[in-house]
Design a protein around this nucleic acid. Structure first.
Lengths: 201, 201
DNA sequence: GGGATTACGCTACTCAGGTAGCGAAAAGGA
DNA sequence: TCCTTTTCGCTACCTGAGTAGCGTAATCCC
């Protein structure tokens, strides 16, 4: 490596400042100018590391993700709602970013902006998908173990099932604005596990 | 009514121009300046009718929705995939807006921008939800008829089921970037109808 | 101790979405 | 006819995201 090295403390300072701003004022309030000022660097330096505000915002959210482990008690009816609730908690945190504590409008806030960011920049989309990938791998493994144990159908379409569960959560947050919580996670799992057909359907 | 009346032909001209731009160049290429110019009006007039670009874009998409009727043959296994396919077709059309015919990257394009627009402006969100409401009502009625016929469980959670089906489509378009089409719609319905549990689960 | 190379900070700039303010035009009502 | 009201078009402006270009600082290599 040749040339002047990057200051190693800049990334952390920037992400700290950006996190504060994003949580306090939401996506619209995340101003690159102000982040640079708070972090004590020049705006051009900021842009050298994160080429757009969208990139910066994703970096912030990525760092905020708790690297949740999955608990596998052996009973899919317990483990699955618990895991969905974790996903929902993450969504609700992002949904709440930048608004007053008593503000319960339907807006999806930061979640929606990140989805749009992924659509605007191919590389942001790529990173975002990697962020989800670990989580999805865990969930898929959970389902596959339950299937191997004989609790779930041998010919179950695991991908479709997981899309349905995670999808319903995102759908409510992004599209309908309905609440997602423990109770809803349980309804979801119950509906998906039992199926919709009647005995003679 | 007093005062100078609005020109009645402006709305149509603007929406025509905006539709052309949105379909040809995508959301980022939908420039209010250019729309106004093409429609032969002043930019300030445009903003008097649609207060932001997001409002304008929603108006365009709303007009593009085909007011699809639902077909109810009496067999939910046929009707449900058919209906999901219609939703998917709408999503794929928006997904394709503004890109080259051979461009099949994962981006959600206009769909994602509309979701973000709903998050940015409460009234846009409200309108968007109304747009979905009619569709959801139809689907819910379809499911309820099937339940009343005895094809679906009497105690089925219709809301959760619909969230799962529609949610999976949106999830793939917005989050994972996977394709949604006829084949996927059928996997989805099959998985949701049969349920995930094994016989002895 | 020189280059070569890369990062930093600064100033100045572009570009797009959106706004302010004003004079003129098109109506209805007295 | 004149007054009020509202729309229209225009010019000028604001704001926030992002860029160009330059002088200077820090490092590696010879």
């Amino acid at each position: 490596m040749v040339g002047r090295p990057r200051r190693t403390d800049v990334d952390e300072g920037v992400l700290r400042a950006a996190t504060e701003l994003l949580l306090a004022r939401g996506y619209a309030g995340l101003s690159p100018d102000e982040v640079a000022e708070r972090a004590g660097i020049a705006k051009t330096t900021l842009y050298r590391r994160w080429p757009t505000k969208d990139h910066l915002a994703l970096a912030v959210v990525n760092r905020l993700q708790d690297h949740d482990e999955i608990t596998d008690t052996g009973d899919i009816r317990r483990d699955l709602p618990a895991y969905l609730e974790k996903i929902a908690a993450g969504l609700n945190r992002m949904r709440a970013a930048g608004r007053a504590p008593d503000d319960d409008d339907a807006s999806a806030g930061t979640v929606a902006e990140l989805v749009a960011a992924a659509a605007r920049h191919a590389d942001v989309g790529e990173l975002e998908r990697q962020m989800y990938a670990r989580r999805n791998t865990l969930a898929r493994a959970l389902l596959e173990r339950a299937r191997d144990r004989g609790q779930l159908r041998a010919d179950l379409d695991v991908e479709a099932l997981f899309d349905q569960l995670a999808g319903a959560l995102y759908y409510r947050v992004l599209i309908t604005g309905s609440p997602v919580g423990r109770a809803y996670a349980e309804r979801l799992v119950e509906t998906a596990l039992r199926g919709a057909l009647s005995e003679n359907g």
